[in-house]
């Protein structure tokens, strides 16, 4: 993929004011997330993000439902009738219902084969700070920019609220704040990391599920973690967004998940839309020439008719 066809805003080669800084990011290890939402709260506190609706959704313990203009960290809760990896003993005992929290409504007849199986997946989602960031590519005003840390940030004094970045993001991260007119999303605490502090969510996370650091180092740490989990029998552990060859060139904020990404509300194979933009311009150019030629043809045809 030619970088120059899509501008110079990609994260891989550092650019900007000549400052060579390592690219910073998040590794969110959902296998240790306890769903305390300290990250959501810390993010709101530090960044003065307004409330995002006092809503009861019935989606397990999730009442924020997804990332948006007023939710920059979002903890997903998924209840599954499936044994945790470490519980896959294969010992062949008949399952005994211990009265643990169960999936399903009271009175539902549980399948005896899966009786007692229960796992609760929790995952703190955030802007991926993509290597090839669609939001940044399509922003007509330059409000979105790539920082010296390789992160993607909106300048709220420039954004004119055209809303183009919103459907461009393949993850559904950035969104427009209706009563404000502009778009908002995670800044990876641009103000904090510039001062050598870690982002508020990572600072607040009690289990180190959210880890902040240099991306290269985080990727190594994550690979080791997956290996360890596999060794302990959690065969469903896999990394999401850690591969620099994926559709967005690798995410600056990547995850260790315990199920397929779509279960967490993440796209399974996102591709930055601007990858196809050169081809789009080609087709559009052809169509424009068709219109010009068609206009000439119609003018000539119109003589005789």
């Amino acid at each position: 993929m030619a970088v120059d066809s899509r501008g110079t805003a990609d994260a891989a080669p550092q650019h900007g004011s000549g400052e060579q800084r390592p690219r910073m990011g998040f590794f969110t290890d959902t296998s240790v997330c306890i769903g305390c939402k300290a990250c959501e709260v810390a993010c709101k506190e530090w960044n003065a993000v307004p409330e995002d609706g006092l809503d009861f959704t019935g989606m397990s313990y999730d009442n924020t439902t997804g990332l948006g203009a007023d939710t920059w960290r979002h903890v997903a809760f998924i209840e599954q009738r499936r044994p945790l990896g470490a519980q896959e003993t294969g010992a062949g005992r008949a399952p005994v219902d211990l009265g643990m929290p169960a999936v399903g409504r009271p009175g539902d007849d549980p399948d005896p084969a899966t009786l007692g199986d229960f796992r609760w997946l929790m995952s703190s989602d955030v802007c991926k700070h993509c290597t090839h960031a669609a939001c940044l590519d399509v922003c007509p005003t330059g409000a979105l920019f790539r920082t010296e840390f390789g992160t993607v940030v909106v300048q709220e004094d420039v954004c004119n609220g055209c809303g183009y970045c919103v459907p461009a993001c393949p993850y559904g991260v950035i969104d427009k704040r209706e009563d404000d007119g502009r778009v908002w999303k995670c800044t990876l605490c641009y103000d904090r990391i510039g001062d050598g502090l870690e982002p508020a969510c990572a600072k607040a996370c009690p289990t180190d599920s959210i880890q902040f650091g240099e991306l290269d180092e985080l990727r190594g740490r994550a690979a080791a973690r997956v290996e360890r989990l596999h060794g302990e029998g959690v065969s469903s552990a896999r990394l999401y967004g850690a591969d620099p060859d994926d559709g967005v060139g690798g995410a600056g904020a990547f995850f260790l998940l315990l199920d397929e990404p779509e279960v967490y509300g993440l796209p399974p194979d996102p591709v930055v839309t601007t990858r196809d933009l050169p081809d789009m311009w080609k087709h559009a150019g052809l169509a424009a020439l068709t219109l010009l030629a068609g206009g000439v043809a119609a003018t000539i045809l119109g003589r005789t008719r």
């Binding site: 948006g68 998924i78 459907p167 559904g172 397929e260 279960v263 509300g265 796209p267």
Partner: peptide
């Protein structure tokens, strides 16, 4: 599969 039928995109 999806997260409670919620859209992936905004």
């Amino acid at each position: 599969r999806s997260y409670y039928g919620r859209p992936v995109l905004n």
